[in-house]
Computed example of a mutant assay.
Amino acid sequence: MSDNIKGKVVIITGASSGIGEATAKLLASKGAKIVLGARRTDKLETIANEIKAAGGEAIYQELDVTVPAENEAIVKLAKDTYGKLDVIFLNAGLMPSSPISALKTNEWEQMVDVNVKGVLNGVAAVMPTFAEQKSGYVIATSSVAGLKAYPGGAVYCGTKWFVRSFMEVLRMESAMEGTNIRTATIYPAAINTELLNTISDKGSSEAFQALYDQYGISADRIAAVVEFAVSLPEDTTVNEFTVGPANQPW
């Protein structure tokens, strides 16, 4: 069904590494036009150049998902460059896990800003376009932490539960309003990305590193799920994907 991907314009947030980078390269190889957004423009430039060298199409722009105007700007860039927008993959996220008693309140705020407000800002930026054209696809990275709670994950789990709930209501309301906006929420387990680098709490960091060392699988596995979602016919949505290593009991 990769014919459904060819020519589609796709914005990817958190595109400078990990799941975002892997997805950008895979969708570009299937003929999608990729709009890369993240804070590290040097990384985005390298990825865009690699995509173009392989015969694909990609542009990039600095994007801090916590700033509404920057989300609006990357939507404008996509439309100005390619004339339309089909998909936004809301993939930016932070996971500085720690016990509540450690009171890492700055990290709590960061997670809410990126993991919650970043999703809200992205949806707000694309909604006028998607509603007007009566089509569009919102894909978001939640986490298995959005399906179950665990010690050390109080705030992170909370942000990912929010994504789960918000995306489900977006799906329902879009169906009711007849805007044909589809949603897909992805719940990855141990996927090898830079996510662990955001953990400052020593105990949490060591525990997660051991977990990922034992079970972690490639970000390409999530990219393949996004590819599948985007390839589906317009009248079909698979709105939730729980994905992880086959040998991880999580």
Rank of each mutant, 00 (worst) to 15 (best):
A124Y: 15
A189V: 07
N71M: 13
Q133H: 12
M95H: 07
G216S: 15
G244F: 08
K134A: 04
E206V: 08
V155S: 03
Y137C: 05
A58W: 05
T141Q: 09
K84H: 09
Q110I: 00
V67E: 13
P233N: 09
P188N: 03
V226W: 01
V116Q: 10
A154N: 11
L196M: 11
S143V: 10
K76V: 00
N4Y: 08
S16H: 03
V75R: 07
G20R: 04
D86H: 07
K84T: 15
A189S: 15
V138G: 10
F166H: 10
L103Y: 13
I191S: 03
S231Q: 06
P99K: 09
A140R: 03
K134H: 12
N192L: 13
A210P: 03
S29N: 07
E50N: 15
I222P: 01
L232D: 02
K25T: 07
I11S: 05
Y156Q: 04
K117W: 14
E194Q: 13
L27T: 13
N71R: 04
S98F: 08
F208R: 10
S174T: 00
T237R: 11
N49W: 04
A246I: 14
V138M: 08
P68Q: 06
M95Q: 12
K79L: 07
A53V: 14
M127F: 15
V226C: 05
V225M: 11
G146K: 05
I181S: 01
A189F: 08
K30N: 09
I191Q: 05
